[in-house]
Design a protein around this nucleic acid. Structure first.
Lengths: 236, 236
DNA sequence: CGTAGCCTTGAAGGTGATCAATGTTTGTGG
DNA sequence: CCACAAACATTGATCACCTTCAAGGCTACG
């Protein structure tokens, strides 16, 4: 079966993610029982807010943005899910719940969707896995707290923090975000206007601090970016 | 032993919290093994950021604010922990970690501290408990996401949302926050200036929407408060 | 080749920050 | 019980940052 072969290949991919380190391939196969690979192109939706939650899953490649409608009528991006990130985890602990956010591919992306029955049957009884999941959720809370602590900081600090946060999720010393990230998306994530984001990033481009090619952002002067985050101290 | 008797009483209290519903008292005793009651008065610290994490625990009565230092040199309140809330959970999944936030009592408060060894020995092997914890963490993420979605909303909406968020954690239809909550604390939680919070809440007081007595806030016109959150739609 | 989405720039306006000064309440020690 | 300090609350004036609105350019894609 072609489908089976694809799934098999994906299971191998999972071994590269820290979460699955130390797990044997057949063990991974078991906890991914019933899983299917979903291949998306740019902007395609994985699911939308309000839909009944079929399951959760893991980003294999590319990236997905998770967004929730806000009271102003547009969308707020609450998370950028990169390879190895779990998506839909938040609602696995409740029965019969609805996805609280929508999910859209950023560039060509692949996702391994695992049915919720597999979660209740295979995951829920494995403390080691759930503890690890707890670690993932804790990490997300940590990031949200850091962002919260930056509320009063100037916009430049928030953008710098976001870029580094995303970049840190990738291995290696590459300073290029391997994902198409538009200025609008940054704005929707930080809860500010596109124009404001553009003004900050244009300045950075002129100063040679960053560079954008094909919506991929590359940081040229990492020290300057880091400086932005703490600059609030100095100014006064 | 007096200590033992106090602990015993606390275990009974736990049964009132949703988390422990359905657990027998001796089962609760087991997962609280080595626990001790900590009684605090207003402003007293449970632990400070950077300290080695001795354990986690549950708020029995009163409340605690969790705050982290921010790049501007002051503190950002990241969470208000009310009775039944878990504190220090976030770092139980990592070994030998430090508390990422500080914790201070708001008014007279009581806390049941459980050593981390009990977590690894009794909790970590119980999928049912960890799944529930996952639910708690998910709830917190949800709240943080809602707050994030309100970034662009006017300050009044943020304050209204915060008050309702805290109020919703208590049973009953009481419209009074049973915790001393200063305007400064609201400001530190929302990442805005005290003055701005005061201006909004003074207006509300003049309009008879809220009332403050002994730092306890009572909502008199719930509908008006709810309106504030969605008002962003109308304005334009 | 026209439309849609993104990026850019400028001008005007508003919300909340900051600074300063004062009142109020709470707590503490003599 | 008073005096004083500390923390909180309040109000006004000025200012900065970001929003909003408007208009135009660029690139990709059907």
């Amino acid at each position: 079966m072609d489908k089976a072969r694809t799934l098999q290949a994906a299971l191998g991919e999972l071994q590269n993610f820290k979460f699955f380190e130390g797990l044997a391939i057949n063990e991974i196969a078991e906890i991914c029982y019933g899983g299917r690979i979903i291949v998306n192109h740019h902007k395609q939706s994985l699911y939308v807010a309000g839909e009944a939650a079929r399951g959760f899953g893991i980003v294999l490649s590319g990236a997905y943005k998770l967004s929730r409608p806000n009271p102003l009528g547009d969308e707020t991006i609450v998370h950028f899910a990169t390879p190895g990130d779990f998506v839909g985890l938040v609602i696995m602990s409740q029965l019969n719940s609805l996805y609280p956010v929508s999910s859209f591919a950023m560039g060509p992306s692949r996702f391994l969707e695992i049915p919720r029955t597999t979660f209740t049957e295979k995951w829920a009884s494995r403390p080691d896995l759930i503890i690890k999941i707890q670690g993932l959720l804790s990490g997300r809370i940590h990031n949200l707290h850091v962002q919260k602590a930056l509320t009063k900081a100037p916009l430049a600090a928030k953008i710098a923090n976001l870029l580094l946060e995303i970049l840190n999720k990738y291995e290696g010393n590459e300073a290029q975000l391997p994902v198409p990230l538009t200025r609008r998306e940054i704005a929707e994530n930080l809860g500010v206007s596109v124009e404001a984001v553009i003004r900050v990033m244009s300045d950075w481009s002129k100063l040679g601090i960053i560079e954008t090619r094909d919506q991929q952002i590359r940081i040229l002067k990492m020290d300057k970016i880091i400086q932005e985050i703490n600059s609030s101290l100095l100014g006064g």
